[in-house]
């Protein structure tokens, strides 16, 4: 079963074929699985709210998106902050500020 078929099945179980066929208008799931799933969540979120929609598609995210995709989506905030410390431009501006103060 392809991602598109699985996403259709989720929507079909909830709201029937008329709603499920809207999936055909989303991004190509073969090329952009995460974008496709994001669109599914956005669409279902319009019906039942974002949180409930995310829960419905969570198994498909786990199955079809890569670890990096998952990290950007679900990584804890502390980790994001840690990454920003090592951001080159940020480090450079801090260095510039320190050197300016020394002078």
């Amino acid at each position: 079963m392809t991602l598109k078929e699985e996403a259709k099945r989720v929507l079909n179980e909830l709201f029937g074929p008329e709603v499920a066929k809207q999936v055909d208008r989303f991004d190509k799931p073969e090329n952009y699985p995460k974008d496709f799933l994001d669109e599914c969540v956005f669409f279902l979120g319009k019906f039942i709210g974002d949180n409930a929609a995310k829960r419905k598609f969570e198994p498909l995210y786990k199955k079809y998106t890569s670890d990096t995709d998952m990290q950007t989506e679900h990584a804890p905030k502390t980790r994001k902050r840690a990454v920003s410390i090592f951001d080159f431009s940020a480090s450079f501006s801090v260095f510039k500020e320190i050197s300016h103060n020394i002078r």
Partner: peptide, 10 residues
């Protein structure tokens, strides 16, 4: 009628 009996919403 929008959903049909097979779906939960229907």
């Amino acid at each position: 009628k929008l959903h049909g009996f097979r779906s939960l919403q229907g």
